[in-house]
Design a protein around this nucleic acid. Structure first.
Lengths: 117, 117
DNA sequence: TCCATATTTCGAGAATACTCGAAATATGGA
DNA sequence: TCCATATTTCGAGTATTCTCGAAATATGGA
């Protein structure tokens, strides 16, 4: 992940409605939710939500897929992992033994296949 | 961690200079860096940097400590871990087996003593 | 084709955030 | 005490972001 990608993702999450949306979708898991269902759950106007969903989509934190008349949104935890990895890159000047506790946070073994939850 | 704490932290990281500062301090590790050294490394005016450091401090992502005439800043990875934990809370509706890959990211075993790197 | 549903796009006003120069505060040493 | 260094605070201008109403687009069914 490059700096601008990280910035987009972090800026996206640093706004209350978008953070609420992301967490709602994390909870919803694989099924995801339609834009309408999200708007209703969070009591946000559909057009305002649409703007926020666009931001989250651009950042890669959520994925959109049209299903009939609705559009389903799902969280994309791959991006989340890449983000955390980026944030903790070169931790302690490349001496990871100095910060072992925190490095547990990042699954650096890359054993992950599907982060879409 | 509560929502507002997460919002402060994410908003703090969602700005280029502050993201640069945080990553610089993550790399610097335990020694940290003085405000002046950070300003020089990132080529930011000291007063502008000071504003950003205040934001990062408020969010708990960095810790400040006066040492003589200078003030040393260090990243605080405890806050980082709490943040990631918050973001992925209730992943997949509380069925973590559905999203095992990503849950590796969060060290839920709480075996960590010192996250200050 | 026509209509209802679902979502997005556009435009504008209000609020918030960023940056900078100038001035203030804090510390240590002569 | 006086001065130099290190950092922060203040105030203002500019830029960006957020929200909303209105209008546009896309889909599926009668």
């Amino acid at each position: 992940m490059e700096k601008n990608d990280a910035l987009y993702a972090l800026a996206a999450l640093g706004q209350e409605t978008r953070l609420d949306v992301f967490r709602l979708l994390v909870k919803a898991g694989n099924e995801g939710m339609t834009a309408g269902a999200i708007a209703e759950a969070l009591e946000v106007l559909p057009n305002t939500l649409s703007t926020h969903l666009a931001g989250l989509s651009r950042s890669g934190l959520v994925k959109a897929e049209r299903e009939g008349r609705s559009i389903h949104y799902r969280s994309n935890l791959d991006t989340m992992q890449q983000l955390v990895t980026y944030l903790l890159q070169d931790c302690c000047g490349g001496n990871p033994e100095l910060c072992a506790p925190i490095l547990k946070i990042v699954g650096t073994d890359a054993s992950q296949e599907d982060g879409s939850c």
